[in-house]
Design a protein around this nucleic acid. Structure first.
Length: 469
RNA sequence: CGGGGUAUGGCGCAGCCUGGUAGCGCGGAAGUUUUGGGUACUUCAGGUCGCAGGUUCGAAUCCUGCUGCCCCGACCA
């Protein structure tokens, strides 16, 4: 089994081999609960309807500041960072290049594509002190195209995929479901630039495969579903949907999709990705918006027909010269002819993913984080603070795990055991090491796996060896 | 954007109909007690009752306007 702190294969392995510890300590910030900022709510705020929203509020992950606008408290922010980092690593692996564009954009830019007037009240418009019209970016096609055209003029510099992870604002008529449908949200948006349609198709495939890996690393089974392509047409648009009871859209797919293999980290993005895409798009998969019952029944045997609910966590699409033509983002081909660069864009709802992860991973007691995104990998509960043996055992375990570079939260508060159990279960750390006089009387501590509820008594040394490599 | 709710201490709520010094539970502080799944008790702190007007001797309560938030629909990463 792989224990390397630098290896990102662990989340997936853990999902497929439940019960085996796999810790991914990045970035490790060991913490004493007495020094942390973790405002747990015992009762559920009434405004929270959906489960992930309730749990995020109760676990002290977020605080609502306005409709659809949230402050990310330390625990929530840690998860958000871990999700962000996975997205970043997989984009980088696929050859995309990170930059950072501003949240505010000039209206003038959006007028070039006609989108300033077309976008509607969903776009937040602002004026500065000089009465210049600005907007809080709901997306960045216009700006990235502006950047691209300023510097790139030759096919020799292509292909390029640029991305950033930045806050967006869409003034939704009705924000709800906590971070799943906020007005302000964190999104990874990537943009590809190619000389022609076949090349653009290859960029699309790169992002498609990268998306399979991103969600897989978070322990999510995201199903690419053919989506509406808008005015440009073509067959190149997919939504990535994860199955969850509380999903917003109905989902219909072939059960076999759920077992398709995910390309591992050794994948060569420069190779032909067509076979992978074919595998993943061969079987029926559609949201209720584009669902074709007749075709579903024709192509999918009854026992493989899956009818569930799903949450959209990503979308990829090809848009050709929709922006490059009006904005005159032109590149010269090998034939010496200047033509609009061919583009696509690729979004992942990063902050939404945090909510979606909870929707897909919880029980009555609270959240159950997949290892790869857990805010802390392990929680240590000292059931009797002040008891010499308990304090010493906890200190030893905490010190060893900390030294091993593991993200560990040590509950050193002087509280009742019941409160500690309830809190640890609520915040959903994958493993709990429970230390108290009863166990220590037999020189044992208890290691509990949150997901399965399995408990195992072992010595302090064994508990440390279990997690620290 | 249509429809419906709601606004009282950090959180969850009662009080409003039938105006008369603002209450309960949780949480917080101090203490006693307890100690392996949210312990019990005592004491304490904490609220211009969303905002602005109006009616009245007197308004959380009645009237008018505004705002925030939530839910149901149509729309969206």
């Amino acid at each position: 089994m792989c224990f390397s702190p630098l290896c990102d294969c662990l989340a997936r392995k853990q999902v497929r081999q439940p019960g085996r510890p796999a810790i991914r300590p990045l970035p490790p910030v060991p913490m004493l609960l007495s020094r942390y900022f973790l405002p747990i709510l015992r009762e559920t705020p009434k405004e929270a309807e959906i489960l992930s929203h309730r749990l995020m509020l109760r676990a002290g992950m977020i605080r609502q500041e306005a409709a659809g606008i949230y402050a990310w408290l330390p625990l929530g922010f840690k998860v958000l960072q871990k999700v962000t980092q996975i997205v970043r690593e997989e984009m980088d692996r696929a050859g995309a290049i990170e930059l950072l564009m501003p949240t505010l954009q000039l209206a003038e830019l959006w007028r070039e594509t006609g989108r300033y007037d077309a976008y509607g009240p969903e776009m937040l418009r602002i004026k500065d002190r000089h009465e210049r019209e600005l907007l809080y970016g709901p997306t960045n096609e216009d700006m990235i195209t502006e950047i691209f055209r300023a510097y790139v003029h030759s096919y020799r510099e292509l292909p390029k995929i640029l991305y950033h992870i930045q806050w967006k604002f869409r003034d939704e008529q009705r924000p709800r479901f906590g971070v799943m449908r906020g007005r302000e949200f964190l999104m990874k948006d990537a943009y590809s630039f190619d000389i022609d349609e076949p090349a653009a198709r290859r960029s699309y495939q790169r992002m498609f495969v990268a998306y399979l890996r991103i969600f897989d690393r978070m322990g999510l089974r995201a199903i690419p579903m053919r989506a509406e392509t808008g005015p440009i047409g073509g067959d190149l648009s997919h939504e990535f949907i994860i199955l969850a009871e509380t999903g917003e859209s109905g989902v219909f797919c072939d059960a076999d999709i759920l077992d398709l293999p995910i390309p591992d980290e050794s994948i060569d993005y420069d190779a032909d990705l067509e076979p992978i895409i074919k595998d993943w798009t061969r079987l029926y998969a559609a949201t209720d918006e584009v669902h074709d019952p007749a075709r579903f029944e024709r192509e999918t045997p009854p026992e493989r027909r899956v009818r569930r609910r799903g949450i959209e966590v990503g979308q990829v699409f090809y848009f050709g010269d929709k922006y490059s033509r009006p904005m005159r983002a032109l590149v010269t081909g090998s034939d010496g002819v200047e033509r609009p660069v061919i583009g696509g864009s690729y979004g992942v709802g990063v902050s939404r993913l945090v909510g979606a992860l909870i929707e897909a991973n919880h029980d009555e007691a609270g959240i159950i984080w997949p290892n790869s995104v857990a805010p802390f990998a392990i929680g240590i509960a000292n059931l009797k603070v002040g008891d010499e043996a308990s304090d010493a055992a906890c200190a030893k375990i905490y010190g060893a795990l900390k030294k091993a570079g593991i993200d560990v939260l040590y509950d050193d508060l002087d509280e009742r055991p019941g409160a500690k159990f309830a809190r640890l279960d609520l915040i959903g750390l994958p493993y709990q090491i429970i230390v108290g006089p009863k166990g220590l009387a037999e020189a044992k501590v208890e290691v509990k796996t949150r997901r399965t509820g399995a408990r195992e008594m072992m010595s302090v040394g064994e508990a440390i060896a279990r997690f620290a490599v």
